[in-house]
């Protein structure tokens, strides 16, 4: 089977969904690029190049460059979805949610419930996140936990090109508002995953056991799944049997897969690049403590960045986020 990059995987999903459903449109800053200049069609193809080429195929009416007006165009996405379209809105960096939080948390998340289930909001928001780019505190955050706090929003975090394609397609076809969080480090990795050409969907709300094991469960989210798999290779070479769960969907969350795994391995580390306080890692830790306490050989361990904004300076930034070494060190503490 062929191997494609994370960016190509998202792009393929968008292309297919736009082709098969005329209600799918894309809005965002520079998703085409060049504004209305006909000789400059597809100048950018999105800030992360996720939408490259789509304007040439589907035209500017369906691949819409927007002014820098996040409250305006994310809100317009909510309205367009409520009135029958299936908009995909590109929120360049997740930190910019601050500009349009009202539209996401007060409108997208609540309309279906407030209106007695009579109005659907099939909106997809895609956004980039992650440290490692030397971009400082406003362009490096990994923010997903805050959105899982809101009932009504679905939150998914792909970890490789295969699940990125399947989850993106599932998000567009889903009748609820879905936020898909794309990690920038994953976008930069060499393609190693087989990705089918035909469209497919993965179930939102289902975790995936990336590799089974019996001594320790590592729970990864997006890029940290990649780190967990790298750490597991080293730990296995030292004779330990490691189970790696790729959480994939944070809301809804696959509690069953987590609990089943922890009951088997009796030890768990949750690796999360979001801030530590009130985080999804804290939520998972509470879940395990409540539902599998008697099975545990040790308290659930969380690996998060410290309770600080993301620093600019490279040496500080490299100390900030979870990495392979911190996972191995913490795993050894539990295993030895």
């Amino acid at each position: 089977m062929r191997k494609i990059s994370y960016i190509q995987a998202i792009n393929e999903s968008l292309r297919h969904e736009m082709k098969s459903n005329e209600n799918v449109i894309i809005m965002g800053e520079d998703v085409a690029g060049g504004g209305s200049r006909d000789d400059k069609l597809d100048a950018w193809g999105g800030p992360m190049r996720l939408t490259k080429g789509l304007v040439k195929e589907f035209g500017r009416d369906r691949v819409k460059d927007t002014p820098i007006s996040e409250a305006g165009f994310v809100g317009a996405g909510v309205g367009a979805a409520a009135a029958g379209l299936r908009p995909v809105v590109d929120l360049m960096y997740v930190s910019f949610y601050g500009v349009c939080a009202d539209q996401i948390t007060n409108n997208a998340a609540k309309i279906h419930y407030m209106f007695g289930g009579k109005v659907k909001v099939p909106l997809t928001i895609m956004t980039a996140m992650g440290v490692g780019g030397n971009k400082a505190a406003q362009h490096s955050e990994t923010l997903y936990s805050i959105f899982t706090h809101f009932p009504g929003l679905k939150c998914i975090v792909p970890s490789n090109p295969y699940n990125a394609k399947g989850l993106m397609t599932a998000a567009i076809r889903d009748d609820d508002p879905v936020i898909i969080f794309n990690n920038r480090q994953l976008m930069g990795l060499k393609p190693t995953y087989d990705v089918p050409e035909d469209p497919y969907t993965l179930k939102i709300g289902k975790a995936n056991i990336e590799k089974p094991g019996t001594d320790l469960t590592l729970i990864g989210i997006g890029y940290t799944t990649y780190l967990c798999l790298e750490a597991a290779k080293i730990l296995e070479s030292k004779g330990f049997s490691i189970e790696v769960i790729d959480l994939i969907s944070l809301s809804p969350m696959d509690e069953e897969t987590i609990i089943k795994s922890v009951k088997k391995t009796k030890k768990v580390i949750i690796v999360d690049e979001d801030y530590p306080r009130c985080s999804i890692a804290a939520d998972i830790s509470a879940l395990i403590s409540e539902q599998a306490f008697d099975y545990l050989d040790a308290p659930p361990k969380r690996i998060n960045p410290p309770h600080t904004p993301v620093p600019y300076s490279k040496p500080l930034e490299s100390l900030y986020a979870p990495n392979k070494e911190t996972i191995i060190k913490n795993a050894k503490n539990l295993l030895e």
Partner: peptide, 18 residues
């Protein structure tokens, strides 16, 4: 500051955009 150094305007914490 651009080079992320301790002697930067922001002690290396903000960088080029801050």
């Amino acid at each position: 500051e651009l080079l992320g150094k301790a002697t930067g305007t922001n002690k290396g914490k903000g960088g080029t955009m801050h």
